[in-house]
Design a protein around this nucleic acid. Sequence first.
DNA 1: ATTACTAGTAATCGAGTAA
DNA 2: TTTACTCGATTACTAGTAA
Lengths: 235, 235
Amino acid sequence: MKSIKPAHFLTLLELLLLGAKDRAIQLSTIELAKRLRKSQQAASKHLCELEKEGYITRIRDGKVGSVKLTNKGVETLISIYSLMKSILEAVPKVFEFKGYVFSGFREGAYYISLNGYRRQFIEKLGFDPYPGTLNVRLIPGVDRELKRELNRYPGITIDGFEDQYRTYGGAKCFPAIINDSLKCVVILSERTHYDDSVIEIIAPIQIRKELHLKDGDLIKVKVYSTSVNWFKSSS
Amino acid sequence: MKSIKPAHFLTLLELLLLGAKDRAIQLSTIELAKRLRKSQQAASKHLCELEKEGYITRIRDGKVGSVKLTNKGVETLISIYSLMKSILEAVPKVFEFKGYVFSGFREGAYYISLNGYRRQFIEKLGFDPYPGTLNVRLIPGVDRELKRELNRYPGITIDGFEDQYRTYGGAKCFPAIINDSLKCVVILSERTHYDDSVIEIIAPIQIRKELHLKDGDLIKVKVYSTSVNWFKSSS
DNA sequence: ATTACTAGTAATCGAGTAA
DNA sequence: TTTACTCGATTACTAGTAA
């Protein structure tokens, strides 16, 4: 499937805005060109090509012709619209995944303890995190898409900062529950030291001890795409 | 205000889809190029230019850089999204306008009487129209936008047809009420013989006689953008 | 009026490649 | 590995103009 040309998309969009979705509109190439801020010749070419590629139908009778989007044309616009909608109007959603606990090299603990981050955790998450992260390796498969999915939601933003030596990247946090019992927060770092199959989790207390977890244990995590944090409002 | 370049828009859209709206995402120019079906060089150039024009911010540290949409970038996408939304998800709406009754040259009556149209009126509108149209000249001003606005709605479609001599264009119909009393139907022809300031109205009966209208009379019309016709369901 | 052709120009892209 | 440069090829555009 060949995709629509960039310039053609904007022309097709303009035709949509002019009402060519449900009926033919009378439209001269000059008028169209004015709206696209292009020459009359360019508008004419666009219409010719859009017609040839099946996005529009045209009727020419003497003077100004008329244009109407075809099903293909409307569907093309709708598919792009739907993509944008899924992100721009994303509603809170629950993602559930499973993974195995493993030990990192305590970089998580180091970063979490940095004042630049810690202050934001306390302010935005409503708790002072236990200095250490629970590393979870996702089960291969659909889970690999999880981080990408989650990233489409605003979450709770942790800003990056810099000291005199280096810069520290930002992150996004999402409220979550481990094994249907322990409230925690999933952290997605802008610059993670792990690949996409690893998720890091923090909580006010030491998760490993609380749930008696050891390396290799399988846990279930429910992540909420909401940006409202429950540590701040409920117990 | 300079508008975004066509090709840049698609790149910006791709970044949105990758989740760069609310946080920086790690993304190589090669990965981006693959998604855009362009070369790595083109992707690199797009990112450079989008950054220069303030649509994105980039962080480069050694290996893969990361990208995040700026407010300007997100707003640009949202404005395009909103335009599409207003048309693709248009909700039924009432338009009210005023205009002066005037006499045409009875072309309306001729067209309405054609079997190709008349059959569709009976089937789709639920009535056999009086053979004649009420011509209304809109009061200059915002009313001039009315037809363009209405055209964004599907309405009730009357298909064009052809006989052995010529082709006849299609039209869209919208239920309407004149002077808060008489139910009628506004017709927007694909190829109208009038300019944008004129609206044609049909009804099962002769509107002029029923409302005692003569040329120059001012009438008020409420048009409903719904595609459900009330002649078929209620009295 | 239109629309759309031709020809010349400007923008964009891709291959090669340096840092 | 990256990213982004130069430069030749390709594509998209505008001006002029015929139909």
